[in-house]
């Protein structure tokens, strides 16, 4: 608020009262601090389930051109295992058809900038390139293009499944579904 101050020469000088402005500035500061979300930026990847499964559905149709990305669960020696976590020695092995993308333990031991970050392993780039090749060579009749199925064993940590799905989306493949849990591996 401006205050009038008489001067020796009869003119009036204005003196600004800064207190209310500082009040408002502090309030704005608190407001924007609270409004800022400190949570990580979250998104979502669409992956529809098979439409022709579940309640009252018929026999699922099989496309012979479909690509099935398998996320297998092996022990360190490369044999199927029933251990529950990577700490107990479980390892993820990525496979399409007969092609194996990584050896057991390779993902779990991978470090990036001094941290264990399997999400940064080159195997995901390799998977992407493979998917692009499949997509470009697709000769099926589906309107949505190459169908891809992600088939992960139940013990596989979710981050590996998301990484595989991430590469499918990067390869601009529209028809991606998850294998139903009851499908035998």
């Amino acid at each position: 608020m401006a205050k009038k101050k008489g001067s020796r020469f009869g003119s009036e000088e204005l003196e600004l009262d800064m207190t209310p402005m500082i009040d408002i500035v502090f309030n704005l500061l608190i407001f924007f601090m609270c409004a800022t979300k400190f949570r990580s930026q979250e998104g979502m990847i669409e992956a529809f389930l098979p439409k022709n499964r579940g309640q009252g559905s018929g026999t699922p149709q099989i496309d012979l051109n479909e690509v099935r990305i398998k996320l297998l669960w092996y022990d360190r020696s490369g044999r199927p295992t029933n251990v529950k976590t990577p700490r107990e020695g479980g390892c993820v092995v990525l496979k399409i058809g007969d092609e194996v993308f990584n050896s057991a333990g390779e993902l779990e031991d991978f470090t990036y900038r001094g941290r264990y970050l399997p999400e940064k392993h080159p195997v995901w780039r390799k998977l992407y390139e493979k998917l692009v090749a499949f997509r470009d060579g697709y000769s099926g009749t589906s309107e949505k293009g190459l169908p891809v199925i992600i088939d992960a064993r139940k013990q596989v940590p979710t981050k590996y499944v998301i990484s595989a799905l991430n590469e499918v989306v990067r390869a601009k493949i529209k028809d991606v579904t998850f294998a139903a849990p009851e499908i035998p591996y």
Binding site: S40, E42, G43, M44, I45, E46, A47, F48, T158
Partner: peptide, 10 residues
């Protein structure tokens, strides 16, 4: 069947 998985972009 319209499902999606949440993921972090960080």
């Amino acid at each position: 069947y319209k499902t999606s998985l949440a993921a972090s972009k960080d």
